[in-house]
Design a protein around this nucleic acid. Sequence first.
DNA 1: TAATACTGTTAGCCCAACCTAAGAATATTC
DNA 2: GAATATTCTTAGGTTGGGCTAACAGTATTA
Lengths: 163, 163
Amino acid sequence: MPTPKRLSASLEDYLETIYHIIAEKQVARAKEIASALKVSRSSVTEAFRSLAQKGLINYAPYEVITLTPAGQVMAKDVILRHKVLKDFFIKVLAVGEKVAEEGACKIEHAAPTEIIDRLTQFVSFIEQCPRGGTDLIAGFSKYCQTGKTDKRCKECITHCLEK
Amino acid sequence: MPTPKRLSASLEDYLETIYHIIAEKQVARAKEIASALKVSRSSVTEAFRSLAQKGLINYAPYEVITLTPAGQVMAKDVILRHKVLKDFFIKVLAVGEKVAEEGACKIEHAAPTEIIDRLTQFVSFIEQCPRGGTDLIAGFSKYCQTGKTDKRCKECITHCLEK
DNA sequence: TAATACTGTTAGCCCAACCTAAGAATATTC
DNA sequence: GAATATTCTTAGGTTGGGCTAACAGTATTA
């Protein structure tokens, strides 16, 4: 049972940010979290209290904060959801990096686990299946522009058989 | 420019519900909205005030409420987002009706317009393209269970060419 | 039409998440 | 090591969304 009950979107964002900052700079400071999330330092303090009280971070006033094991699990879960969504947006829907990132940031908090799981499978399926793969995605991009598939698709299939 | 700035998730839910109830029963009562959204009647009153103040519903105490033209546009937009997501979940990811519905309910408020648009195109693409279609989805379902594609996919391609 | 039942509104409260301003702790530098 | 700068916390306020309980309209029906 990897994923118990979810936090609020806001707390998930804090956790995610804390994880990333620790990964990058060893230690997370309130100041940096505040600027990453574009909130005030006092909001960060409050979030710390809340996360500490939920057993997700180790926190004492004026001290360096760290993630508890539970906090790490939780943070990784959020980050995974983010990654799966972003991957799907970029690899399958072929949207731009920026929109993919923004979309993932928002949807990660709302998407049920079942859907994230399916999406994971779908992306790897589409990449592996000879009928999926780059061509399918390229075909999709064309389709987005022209609204049509017909001609291209015949080419696609013969092209597929050559593999 | 169909979609201006978004409402809060909560207000979008109210608008969506109001639209559906009016469509079904001609007129929306606070009581019914309350039970549909599982909130108290007083919360509905507050939401009415808020929506009215934003020019999305016509509201006067103790009177029947209706959607303004702007409210209709907004409601339809939310409902479209919901539908697109649910369709994708069911038709492409092949998740169950219930999870699809719940997922759509949550994600509809968070998903950027660009992603909704792409998803719309993707679903119709996958349904139209001979390399996509039912077989691809069926292949995906199998893949979900077995984790493999290989053998099945070869069959798929020849099957495709017969069309 | 008067009594009752139902529905909607108001008042007053809670909580999460944000804010600013001011004060406390820690770090830095002279 | 004292003064200054930086960072963190506290205090107190706001907003949005929810609640219950009490009250006010509207409807029903005897």
